[in-house]
Amino acid sequence: MSEPDEQIKDAAARRPRGWLRATIVGTLAFAFVGAGFGFIAFLSQLRGAEVKPARNADGIVVLTGGSSRVSDAMELLAGGYGKRLLISGVHPTNDVQDISRTLPDNHKLLKCCVDLDRSAINTRSNAAETRRWARERGFKSLIVVTSNYHMPRAIVELSHAMPDITLIPFAVVGDKWRDEPWWTSGGTFRLLLSEYAKYVAAEMRVRLADIGLDLTSDLAEQPAATPRRPATAQANKD
């Protein structure tokens, strides 16, 4: 075979590889840009300050896992924003007395109007247990209390589990969030990226489930109990 023929053959062999490489690079670039815009859209949903609910609801649910979530939910209950409060994701070894020690001013409310859910281990099981609680009580509206960065995913899961119940978000804003911009803190930035990834995964799972494709298994089994810790400490890992 002559040298020109070999060059033509080599060029023909390189063209498919070049096309494949360009396709992969273009797809990755498109995905990266899309993820960037999605992250910006996610950040735009996060409140920078706490705003009292515009209306009352039948009940209040607080998802454990962040500082001051439970105390803020108790304030809403004391203010008459709901009839009862569900604390979802309480550590299995904790009880009302543990919470009472951290919130001594709300002892009466804790005894009369607060229910504890020790089964939930993540946001999805929070939603399942909240649905059960709300239906048992006949509630048609709930104020949802959780951290601002967790609220988008919580609303996705709760709305999917309870499409017939009105959800009113109350986003808890931590001191660190108020004291310094999130982009100046490596820890906060990593937390937001992680939460954004979980939020996207929850959106995809819910959308697939809506068209009859539930690719996930049932809720994970609750892990074995660990040594006692404060009731307001993080029991819900997700």
Rank of each mutant, 00 (worst) to 15 (best):
G34F: 06
L193P: 00
D98L: 02
I87V: 15
A201R: 11
D179N: 12
T27N: 01
A29K: 01
G18W: 10
N122H: 10
I87W: 06
W133C: 06
P223W: 07
R205C: 01
W177Y: 11
A29W: 03
I99W: 09
A57T: 09
V61Q: 08
R190W: 03
V114Y: 02
H160L: 00
V206W: 01
M204V: 15
A220I: 10
D58C: 07
V145D: 08
D238L: 09
S67D: 13
G26M: 03
S100Y: 00
S159M: 03
D98A: 08
A35C: 11
L142K: 03
L191Q: 10
A13I: 07
Q7H: 10
N56G: 11
L215G: 08
K140I: 00
P16D: 03
I40C: 01
G89T: 07
T93P: 00
T23N: 00
E195L: 05
T130M: 13
A128V: 14
K111D: 14
I24K: 09
A154R: 03
T226E: 12
L213H: 05
D115S: 15
T166Q: 14
L193F: 08
T102I: 09
R47Y: 00
W183K: 01
R15L: 15
A49Y: 04
N106Y: 15
L86W: 02
G38L: 05
T226W: 00
C112S: 14
E221N: 12
T123K: 03
R190V: 13
K9D: 10
V172C: 10
I211S: 05
V51F: 02
L213P: 01
R101T: 11
G82D: 07
A29N: 02
T146H: 04
K176L: 13
